[in-house]
Write a protein that binds this DNA or RNA. Structure first.
Lengths: 234, 234
DNA sequence: GAATTGTCCGAACGAACGTTCGGTAGTAGA
DNA sequence: TCTACTACCGAACGTTCGTTCGGACAATTC
């Protein structure tokens, strides 16, 4: 799927239930590759433009110009600008969760699993910077049914993280507010898009290591210290 | 100043250099209270509307409706919608820095000073939620001269925090990336506006205490426990 | 009391907005 | 070859946008 890059691929998740502006159905089982590929291409441009100018600030004419398709032609692939944002957000959220579930399988150690969560989030963020910024920045933009659906996926993602932290709490006998911990962690990770500079800042893996370090050692008891190797320039 | 609440007052900082759409000058030294009070009132409404609908999504007609002033009448107090955002952001940044400088005076302990920073930020955030969301969310909206000016104030604020953390590093002999630490801390604090619910979450002081805890114990060595050891430099 | 300035408004400007309409090629199956 | 459908596009739709114009009324100054 065109919204991904090589680094964090997802195995051909269907981007959207097949339904053009004319409301057609999937029909046979074969993939209508032409339609899907064009839609994915448009969504990629849309993510870039929403990222650059914000959802409200971006116009359909901007998208038309960027994608090389006429204004009217765009509406062959979706029914409104709002649906565009919805498709981008839903797909991005689903992808990052799918990636995460795959990675969490490799470890049962609660502390390691939190590290995996942070690493997955930051790596996905870096590999899909534009779509992820749209996810983070246009958080409250969608309304009604589409907004509710995206918010539901978001809660699912939040819940995974909360469970990880509750596990950690249980096994280590710690005491802290799970809610505040989750939201602080998300804050650290999601604020990221406002400052990351590829020429200055380290790669995702190293950043994840450092952030996990900052987060975990505020949460673990003082004695429990495993790896704390990350160091960087002043 | 009307943008503040009782909790975090600032001693009558001039909100804007006196200059209406017609470009008039301050003239004599007396305060033109009528103009200033009306402008402050409009800015308050503007902050609320920008907060609710985003800068691009908010229209001057929304502001006209909310403030009870005619569309044309608004332009008596500023020259453009962009200047409106600029005035809100500049004033809010200046206020929070001014508050901070006042509070930092009471302690020389590096660790305590970081706590003061967090507490000041969150308390100001809660007391001026709308303006602070506009500051955080419309971070990249302003362009050119106005954008540069606001970004300069932001750098000043960032710098204060960085200095605090570098002090902490020096006195405690720690090793971490100051840049990443500052930005992680800002992430935790600024993400805040996306989730805070006054019916669920604690007050600012308690939240600041918890967040400082999460942050500091990821930064302090394991042995250095129990906050507030209140010792000066070794 | 006349002149000037400050405060504010109704009405309108041109531009830009998201979306739709009617159509035209091109392709695919019958 | 006829038919049906896909993939688009130029041109326009009605609406909303930020901003401006000319003036009304009130306050202040001379």
């Amino acid at each position: 799927m065109a919204l991904e890059t090589a680094e964090t691929r997802s195995p051909a998740a269907p981007l959207a239930v097949r339904r053009s502006a004319n409301g057609r159905k999937p029909g046979n089982g074969t993939v209508d590759s032409r339609f899907d590929r064009q839609l994915a291409r448009v969504l990629e441009h849309a993510a870039r433009i929403f990222c650059e100018k914000g959802y409200e600030g971006a116009s359909m004419r901007d998208l038309s110009r960027a994608s090389g398709m006429s204004l009217a032609g765009l509406y062959h692939y979706f029914e409104s600008k709002e649906e565009l944002l919805y498709l981008i957000q839903k797909h991005t959220f689903r992808s990052i969760i799918e990636n995460l579930r795959g990675r969490l399988g490799v470890s049962t150690d609660p502390q390691e699993r939190v590290r995996i969560f942070v690493e997955n989030h930051l790596e996905y963020f870096l590999a899909n910077k534009e779509a992820m910024k749209v996810l983070a920045h246009e958080d409250e933009t969608l309304k009604d049914a589409r907004g509710a659906e995206v918010r539901a996926i978001k809660r699912e993602y939040y819940r995974i993280c909360l469970d990880l932290l509750e596990d950690l709490k249980r096994t280590q006998g710690l005491e802290y507010s799970g809610r505040l911990a989750v939201l602080s962690l998300f804050g650290m990770m999601n604020w990221f898009y406002t400052w990351h500079n590829p020429r200055i800042d380290a790669n995702a893996k190293a950043l994840a290591e450092e952030m996990s370090g900052i987060f975990l050692y505020g949460v673990l008891p003082r004695e429990k210290n495993k790896r704390r190797t990350a160091q960087a320039k002043p």
